[in-house]
């Protein structure tokens, strides 16, 4: 329940920040055909001419009833915009997050559990290299290789311009071809970080007494890793996953901008640039709710993985 004042604080802070930003979305260059009163009319039409306190209260009320206002730039309800962009982002970043954790955990386990030293060394070296790469630089490298040099995959956008004229199967393949590069660029660096983390966690579990006891009982090394140390190592990974959930909607701003992917990150970025107040606030609202939901989810998941945590909360 601590989440409610937390959200309230976040929203108020964002509201004040956006109010403090200079520039006016209703300011026009004087031009032919635009009268001075157009500004006032527009401001009135978007209800932006009311006093600050009234707008603040109205806006707070809006979150309760699910009315996030109308975007200044798109002239459409913010909720619709967020719904569309959110769906696009969930496909891209959701898939990437899933792959990050699958790849990362698998690589970390393989590195920690391997008897052969070179396997561990190669996997660890690869992970720490990949983890150091700026994700959008990786994106640039991938675009250069697969789009510019080889010409296999499209440079940006979510679907081809003429996609509507084709069959469903064609459109699906087209979509996947557009998805491949941004998804890969988003997946690899974080997967490297997770791999290193899992490896260290499993390694630290392997030194513990219950693992030595298992070893003394003659249990094979693979079984020790999979059955005994994985469980202890999974706990922080699960926590990490909860913390990563909000990043699914907000964390890929740069890659979405780079690949012109019409998702939440790009929407928020453009909204800030255009000083599209309702849209910025709406995006902030969605992401903050997700952060809070993510940490609650992490708690739930860790009590599912770890009985000790369950007893503490009960």
């Amino acid at each position: 329940m601590a989440a409610v004042p937390l959200l309230l604080g976040v929203l108020t802070l964002v509201f004040l920040l956006v109010q403090a930003a200079p520039g006016d979305p209703f300011q026009f260059e004087p031009a032919a055909g635009v009268s001075g009163s157009a500004q006032r009319t527009l401001r009135h039409a978007f209800e932006a001419d009311r006093p600050l306190a009234v707008r603040y209260l109205d806006w707070m009320r809006g979150f309760l009833v699910g009315d996030l206002g109308v975007s200044f730039t798109y002239r459409r309800p913010v909720l619709d915009l967020i719904r569309e962009a959110g769906a696009n982002t969930i496909v891209l970043a959701g898939l990437a997050t899933l792959l990050q954790f699958l790849l990362g955990t698998a690589a970390g386990l393989a590195a920690a559990g391997s008897r052969r030293r070179w396997v561990d060394r190669i996997l660890t070296g690869l992970s720490s290299t990949v983890y150091s790469l700026p994700s959008f630089w990786l994106g640039l490298v991938l675009v250069w290789l697969f789009s510019v040099r080889l010409g296999w995959l499209p440079v940006s956008q979510m679907r081809s311009v003429d996609a509507a004229e084709h069959s469903l199967a064609w459109r699906l393949v087209d979509f996947l071809r557009h998805l491949a590069l941004p998804c890969l660029a988003l997946t690899l660096p974080a997967a490297g970080g997770i791999a290193l983390y899992v490896r260290e966690e499993v390694r630290s579990q392997l030194g513990r007494a219950f693992v030595q006891a298992a070893r003394a009982r003659g249990i094979g090394e693979k079984a020790i890793v999979m059955r005994h140390s994985l469980r202890g190592a999974l706990l922080p990974v699960v926590n990490l996953f909860g913390l990563a959930l909000p990043g699914i909607l907000g964390g890929s701003v740069v890659l979405e901008v780079l690949f012109a992917w019409p998702g939440m990150g790009r929407l928020a970025y453009q909204a800030v640039l255009a000083k599209d107040e309702p849209l910025v606030l709406g995006c902030a609202w969605v992401t903050s709710v997700l952060v809070v939901a993510g940490s609650i989810m992490a708690d739930l998941m860790s009590s599912w993985v770890d009985p000790r945590a369950r007893e503490e909360t009960a």
């Binding site: 937390l6 403090a20 970025y269 903050s288």
Partner: peptide
């Protein structure tokens, strides 16, 4: 710590973007 929690809940890049557009 409540203040820190609020800041941690802010999407970092959005915070940065808004701050950067202020000045």
């Amino acid at each position: 710590m409540r203040g820190v929690d609020v800041l941690r809940c802010m999407p970092r890049l959005l915070l940065v973007l808004v701050c950067a557009s202020l000045f």
